[in-house]
Design a protein around this nucleic acid. Structure first.
Lengths: 142, 142
DNA sequence: TCTTGACTTGGAGCGCGCTTCAAGGAGTAG
DNA sequence: CTACTCCTTGAAGCGCGCTCCAAGTCAAGA
């Protein structure tokens, strides 16, 4: 069975999802019913791939499935839904900015904590060393 | 019932969690059994608060509960678990870096898509305007 | 005394996003 | 023909992280 388009397996690999997930996305309306080979097997187009990549990117940044569904429905309705779709994307972009901020905060917190652990380890490796005044507060601060 | 320490409600607010979540965290061992007032109500200390803030920060950056449990257990075992704990934090920091990268990629993708939607909207507002050559490819590219 | 409200517990329930199962069909190699 | 692989479907199941429920205790206020 040749015929044009990617098999579900191939597309799953290309998009970094599983075949299960692709069927699931189709079932819940995130992607329109996919073309079929004569034997009934799905055949994905390049357009499908682009859309799936987009979906993957949105999911990977924690857009809920429900929101993606809203977007997908608008997309199917055409260009006159542009403003609503843009709103969804802008909201999600703002959500992303928030996530980035939280992650950066945590990242720098971890930098400090990791440095502190190194100090604790030093103290253990060199048992009788004198802990500098300035570090007294840090060490063992969980 | 006065007595020292924060009520569960107060602590929940301070940490941006619900009282339910605080009990849940205690139940699954993320936090040691909390002190009690004479009537059996929980009373949280400042040390509890610091730890809960840390937990909150880790959860907010998608550290799984299981991993936080591993960390909590090591922390209770004391300073000789420093290396293991540091490893956990370093791994999580790396995970955070990965998340930030994915989010930034999505953020810039959205910037482009949003700009494109604006173009579509312009075309609709000024029906007979000429779409510049350079934009032909972009417009309607979902 | 009665009510109100904040807390306690163990256990059940829930929403999300998949993930797996069971049963079956179609095409290919030996 | 047999065996194997890859696909199909509808439906059930699952892991996570809460979230809520039911029933009870306790203390303060009217």
């Amino acid at each position: 069975m040749r015929e044009a388009g990617y098999t579900i397996r191939a597309m799953a690999e290309r998009c970094g999802m599983t075949a299960h997930t692709l069927r699931y996305y189709e079932r819940v309306g995130l992607i329109q019913p996919v073309g079929r080979a004569r034997n009934g097997h799905r055949r994905y187009s390049d357009a499908d791939e682009a859309w799936l990549h987009f979906l993957h990117c949105m999911r990977a940044t924690n857009m809920p499935i429900r929101e993606m569904q809203r977007y997908a429905v608008l997309r199917e309705r055409g260009d006159d839904t542009s403003i609503e779709r843009r709103k969804i994307l802008e909201d999600h972009q703002a959500a992303i900015a928030g996530q980035i901020a939280a992650l950066q905060k945590a990242h720098s917190l971890l930098t400090h904590k990791i440095a502190n652990y190194r100090k604790i380890e030093d103290r253990i490796r060199i048992p009788n060393s004198v802990t500098p005044e300035s570090d007294r507060a840090l060490v063992s601060a969980n």
